[in-house]
Design a protein around this nucleic acid. Structure first.
Lengths: 200, 200, 200, 200
DNA sequence: TATGAATGAGCGTTCATTCAT
DNA sequence: TATGAATGAACGCTCATTCAT
């Protein structure tokens, strides 16, 4: 169990995302995922320890790539303001491009047991660390207020981004999520004490 | 079914909150709630249509009072800044006072089926409308930027508050949530273009 | 329990017939019968030992009157042929007049446990004895064949009448059951060796 | 669900007949049938859609063979009188050979919901059509009266056979059902106007 | 007598997981 | 590796019956 290799592993992950997005978390039986992946039910257990392991792996794989993409853009030499905007824009862009992934991470996977969600949070930690670094840099460079509470600032970034994406899904993608990156980043920066009047 | 009265109704609601907080949403069987409430399984069905109805009622009852409390404080003649601070502080205070309720609303109830969450959203709508009113007032009185995106602003308020509370729970209440109301409100106001330097 | 008196007893019996006819045997809960009878659930148990007792009593009361009616007409001085015709006609007439009773005795009560049906059979015994007497008389008077198997003859009478009524109900009363009394009696008599050519 | 194959399907059908015959229709839980069949509860649902489907299938399988057997004998070149006798004798013989089946079809399955009984009736229809054909032939060949009501005649055949079998079961098989075929057929034929004195 | 709120045993069905092939 | 038939524990809900008032 837990041997990660071969194309089957990927097939199952992809199938899980699609099945969960289409049927909802609690209608996503192992047998349904197996069928969609084109493998037998039992095969799932050759690649994953159990159903929960499949779901965690979905998040791991997908969020791993997600975070890598965001990191990649941040390494370039950008101002803090540009970095925050880049992070938000990248976050929105990636979820815009894969609505199934958006549904799964924003809605369906949150229905999982609190135990599973703790593990998901661990995976998210790397993403949060990126935000932490960004805030630190903002303060160090004098762009953000000295008295800014860093932890709260990060929670504000994540909470806002998260809520904006969720609302977009709940509104059935009726507007372009990408267009919200600029105003969202602007509000956040302003909240942190950066002078962004000009940008808005 | 669905006759709301007597002490049993309240007992069941309270039992449900405790059981869900302690066992998690998907480990909260009807029989467990009944036992905790000190009634027979069947008695649940004299007061509620089904299990889902119990959960919706938990949210209705608790959120109803929650929102009423927040509204009550807002009717006083306060500035927009004071109102936003009051809202955040009140939100944090109420959840500080009932950790089980906090767990249930922030973590466990989100595991419910999307069908149930839609109903929960309807209840939340009233809360969101309060926020909308506040933002409108802020723009009308010139406290907030003219070009503030109202929808996004509300999502920022809700997303931030929500994330702050969730993080507090995930950190096992290791700090005082109430002390975060002022900085959170301040960051939000600043994000909306209000001049709040002095207050912080 | 089992005190048979007062108008409530009758009310409950009547309510049971109606409720069973309208809802079917397995949708006829005690509470439904009580509501229809205009009494509390618990009151049923002041007049009947349990639900099964209600059902047996329905059959007892209704079949008792049913059989009495048939007996009354048979005491008159009629020929065997006339008596058989009278029995069939009377049977059909009574069920024609109360379709709810017909549904209950022909369809719904047969869904009861085999235990209950044994008791129903005991009640029917009196009716069967009437038929037995009739057949005996037919043989004694030479109207029926000497070698007629009396038990079988009775089963033929009952089985035929029963099936004709059931078929009539299954066909939703689309024809007049009463008009079938003459041909049915005629077939039976002929089957028993009576010369009924002229009558048909 | 509903995949009919392998020995398990047969096992479950046979187990159902035995369990129903021994415990009565409403004491025949799925778990009891599964245990008797030597399979897990869940296995039932690999072969049948639900409990009702098991019961319908019992009737389908058993009645299907029952009717086929009767048909097979009727295709031979027999007189109408012989055919009717054959039908009755065959009916009696088959139920004599499987008392559990007799109990199930005559007593227990009649307790099923009217919905289920409608489906059972559909299966029986083929049997009734055989009887219809027989009666028609009787009239066409002048064996039966010209003025015989065909519908009633069929109800007489079915009602009589049915009642004779039921009575035999209620009398706990104390006599040989097969011996009743001749007199029953004779009575029926005579009732239809056939000259059968000689045969009896 | 009469009430009706409360009881709790009982059951059909699902689905994650196993294992013989 | 891969299969998929088989497993059986688990749970929401109903309803006949009781009993305090």
């Amino acid at each position: 169990m837990g041997k990660r290799k071969g194309p089957k592993y990927e097939q199952i992950i992809e199938a899980a995302v699609d099945v969960i997005a289409e049927n909802g978390y609690y209608n996503s039986q192992v047998s349904k995922i197996a069928k969609r992946a084109g493998v037998a039910d039992g095969t799932i257990y050759l690649y994953f320890a159990n159903k929960e392991d499949v779901l965690i792996s979905v998040f791991e794989e997908k969020m791993g790539q997600f975070i890598t993409n965001i990191k990649d853009e941040l390494t370039s030499r950008l101002s803090v303001e540009e970095k925050l905007h880049s992070l938000v824009a990248n976050h929105f862009r990636q979820l815009s491009l894969s609505r199934n992934l958006a549904i799964v991470t924003q809605l369906e996977l949150r229905q999982s047991s609190s135990h599973l969600r703790k593990q998901i949070n661990d995976i998210l930690k790397e993403y949060l660390l990126i935000m932490d670094g960004l805030i630190e840099e903002g303060k160090a460079t004098g762009v953000f207020s000295d008295d800014l509470n860093e932890k709260l600032a990060r929670q504000m970034i994540f909470g806002t981004i998260d809520e904006v994406v969720t609302t977009w899904i709940m509104n059935e993608y009726r507007y372009d999520l990408n267009e919200l990156a600029a105003p969202v980043a602007s509000m956040l920066l302003q909240g942190f004490g950066a002078n962004v009047r000009a940008k808005q």
